[in-house]
Design a protein around this nucleic acid. Structure first.
Lengths: 261, 261
DNA sequence: TATCGTCTGTGCGTTAGAGCACGTACCGGC
DNA sequence: GCCGGTACGTGCTCTAACGCACAGACGATA
């Protein structure tokens, strides 16, 4: 199987891998198209496939009791679905809901684990992705606690746009309410406010971002916090090493003398 | 350096390690006493030490802007502080605040990383701990969103009691408000309700749990969810393997035929 | 015994959001 | 061109929690 540059380049995690590791990984991948409202994972179930989104959007939801639950992480072409596999647990604690149809690369869980074992670069990349994810989960908890719906909505729209790579996408108030864990009318009210400020426009589920800068002022600081942590840990400038200890990515790092190995 | 059974047995993560790995790890540990209100980590700073609590309580807080922030994880003798090191990032995204003075075992970050590299059992254990932590972070976000203060307080008291291993501990309304991200009077009101139901009693910061079962009915289901995920992934019955793939811990797992390696 | 700091309780008005219900506007299909 | 489903808007009441302020209650120390 062979994939064009365009295909893997659309997933930043894959694009960041060394050529050889990536090629090896891609031999196990198949291109699939994911459709909106598809439920890829259900909390508590076995992970059968790992997905590298290239042009779709996936929400991780943590269910509360039997109810709707709350979106805890948004995955686009900057990430991967199924990362908990690398922690040695093949059961997912989250629902994974597609809401932005598009292509993804998919591989079976066993193939993924096998590749992971043989690719230190992939391990490295995914460990950092895990770190970013943990931080974002915590950030999200705090955001959910402190910030009003309008700010959270603005943040969500920005995050979605970043991953959709387009200023136009399809999503209803109903769905956004589901994600943010609020009533539909709560979204309607907040969206209307953003509309009046001419930051966005929408019509029956078709949302257009008109003014990104405006949206950023309307959003809580969590948007920047999330983005900063991603850039710092997984941004363009970082390098790939077989062992993280060889090059700490901290602003300051241990002197080699302290390392003692 | 040599530690008695009593010392390491007080940390469940250490106690779960094979004898040899544990002994090796302990040679690098020093026993320290942590005091209430001590700030072990500050978000964004370098991790210098890893702590295995044996008789103290540590809260991980995610700061929002410059403000107080929100508690995102409670660490007692079932866990470890500094786990993000194993993800190859030596900067912590959380504040770590002691609020329950007591002993802990401490080792330097480089020593920890060195031991980690040479102990598959420790890797295994920490990966599972990470999985549990991620799930709890997500659960916490949902809880914070949906549940009322009284239920969240009951949950927090139960979690604290589990880690304090005593039905009596010291913590003021002010501090609990800080943890849950609510006003002090919010805690006063909720605590008063629990008091009237005779689930707890308190006097100037000295809290006593009178009726655990009662508290559990007052708490949201998140308490059980957290506990369940911990037991399932890190509970007594689980085994230690150099590679997770050798024995999936899922309720169902891949047939060896699927594994293909 | 008096005093001061810490901890807890109460009493306002205010507000974001919940829950429920209904009205309207658009679109596609028969 | 009617009709039914989907999506959005509005209008109410209700409540948990906020912000602020102050009052009481205990405990250590002078």
């Amino acid at each position: 199987m062979s994939f064009s540059q365009a295909v893997f380049a659309n997933n930043r995690l894959l694009a960041a891998l060394p050529h050889k590791d990536r090629e090896q990984l891609l031999t196990h991948c198949e291109a699939v198209k994911l459709d909106s409202a598809q439920m890829l994972y259900r909390s508590g179930e076995l992970i059968r496939h790992v997905y590298f989104p290239t042009g779709c959007l996936i929400s991780l939801m943590r269910p509360v009791n039997d109810s709707a639950g709350l979106e805890v992480k948004l995955i686009g072409n900057e990430g991967v679905l199924g990362f908990t596999l690398m922690l040695g647990v093949d059961v997912t604690p989250f629902h994974a809901l597609v809401h932005g149809s598009g292509p993804a690369l998919r591989m079976t869980a066993p193939a993924f684990l096998d590749e992971l074992e043989h690719s230190p670069a992939l391990q490295q990349e995914l460990k950092r992705y895990l770190y970013v994810t943990m931080t974002q989960l915590a950030q999200n908890a705090a955001c959910t606690r402190y910030h009003v719906v309008e700010a959270r909505l603005a943040r969500w729209l920005l995050m979605t746009q970043d991953r959709a790579h387009s200023d136009h996408f399809h999503v209803t108030h109903e769905l956004m309410a589901h994600m943010l864990g609020v009533r539909r009318v709560g979204i309607t009210k907040a969206a209307n406010s953003l509309l009046k400020q001419k930051f966005i426009s929408y019509r029956r589920g078709d949302i257009t971002i008109l003014d990104r800068a405006g949206l950023e002022t309307a959003a809580c600081e969590c948007y920047r916090a999330d983005k900063d942590i991603y850039e710092r840990i997984l941004g363009e400038e970082h390098t790939f090493l077989p062992h993280y200890r060889d090059e700490p990515i901290a602003p300051h790092s241990y002197s080699s003398g302290m390392d003692g190995v």
